[in-house]
């Protein structure tokens, strides 16, 4: 690392993360302002409530994958794990069978099991994360299909579907996201394991030399990411009142995009949950706005692609200017 500022920031990831959020904050404000001008419904309470409801699933996934990206890894299995945990939860959520905690916990545990397995394969088997989680992407989808026989698991009781409803006029999925984000931010800031995540992602050799149990730290990141994907799957099942084995196809891409937009480095060691939430919100606001403006689905995909690349590009430019 020839750049001293980079080094300093590596030692203080929180500082670096705050700095890199400015670009996203500006993008979010600009988008919000443009939408408010173009379509008056955008700023209505009902619509903004919808936005936070709609970003919740992507947000929960993004918080999880932030942990993995911080270690310098990646998780491509999110979408399949979402489908699997949704199917598991829906199987246990028929009316009058089990209390609410059973399907929720089962879904989260199914996700944690997938994530834990990812972690084991990456740390013990030394399989690159891209390959390990790619395998899980296929395998978890297969398990979801086997468990459901290829059909949606329906007849869901009201207890679980209420998870997608409102509590005191606030969407429950948004509350779940808030709790998850606060928990993850606290962990990253205040616990030894949280600090180790940055250390491992920043420089794995140095972390190992400093006596950090690199394998354990990475395993934890994948397991937590899986558990959160499981939770997202449960919320999704509640939202669509079924466990869909074919749900969540390509759901891994939006969270990764949101995390990167939020300033977390794909190389690991830099970033945080706050930036991720901003990235998630930005993507959610854009999706909502394009629907409100009735922009054709063809153009929506182009706009989304441009924004992902543009946000990161802008961030890179700004950072290199900062260094000079």
């Amino acid at each position: 690392m020839p750049c001293p500022l980079g080094k300093r920031n590596r030692l203080n990831p929180g500082f670096r993360a705050w700095g890199s959020r400015m670009g996203v904050v500006l993008a979010l404000l600009a988008t919000g302002l443009a939408l408010a001008c173009l379509c008056p419904q955008f700023l209505s309470v009902a619509n903004l409530t919808n936005v936070v409801r709609q970003v919740a699933i992507n947000g929960i996934l993004a918080v999880g994958v932030t942990l993995v990206l911080l270690t310098g890894g990646v998780d491509l299995s999110l979408g399949s794990v979402v489908a699997l945990s949704g199917v598991v939860a829906a199987h246990l959520a028929h009316p009058g069978e089990y209390p609410l905690a059973v399907p929720v916990l089962a879904g989260v545990l199914a996700g944690a099991a997938c994530g834990g397995l990812n972690g084991l394969v990456v740390t013990r088997g030394r399989v690159p994360p891209f390959i390990a989680t790619l395998g899980m992407m296929t395998a978890a989808r297969g398990v979801a299909l086997v468990l459901s026989g290829g059909r949606p698991v329906s007849n869901m009781g009201p207890a679980l579907t209420r998870l997608a409803g409102d509590w005191a006029r606030v969407p429950v999925p948004a509350l779940v996201l808030a709790a998850v984000a606060l928990g993850a931010a606290w962990m990253l800031r205040n616990t030894r394991q949280g600090r180790y995540l940055y250390a491992v992602g920043g420089n794995e050799q140095a972390a190992r030399a400093a006596g950090i149990g690199v394998r354990g730290v990475k395993f934890l990141a994948y397991a937590l990411c899986g558990a959160l994907a499981g939770l997202a799957g449960v919320v999704l099942a509640a939202r669509i009142t079924t466990g869909q084995p074919n749900a969540g196809v390509a759901y891994e891409l939006d969270p990764i995009a949101a995390v990167v937009i939020g300033g977390t480095s794909l190389a690991g060691g830099v970033g945080g949950v706050g930036g991720t939430l901003l990235g998630v919100l930005l993507m959610g606001v854009i999706g909502n706005g394009l629907d409100l403006l009735n922009v054709s689905s063809y153009y929506q995909q182009i706009v989304k692609g441009l924004i992902i690349v543009g946000a990161v590009w802008f961030d890179r430019q700004r950072r290199s200017v900062e260094r000079e």
Partner: peptide, 25 residues
């Protein structure tokens, strides 16, 4: 009023419909 793709998908349809109800009331 509008025609958009929800890609045959139930979850995408929920989101699209929520947004449409805001836009077209």
């Amino acid at each position: 009023l509008a025609a958009q793709s929800a890609e045959w998908d139930r979850a995408k349809a929920v989101t699209l419909m929520e947004n449409w109800l805001q836009a077209y009331g």
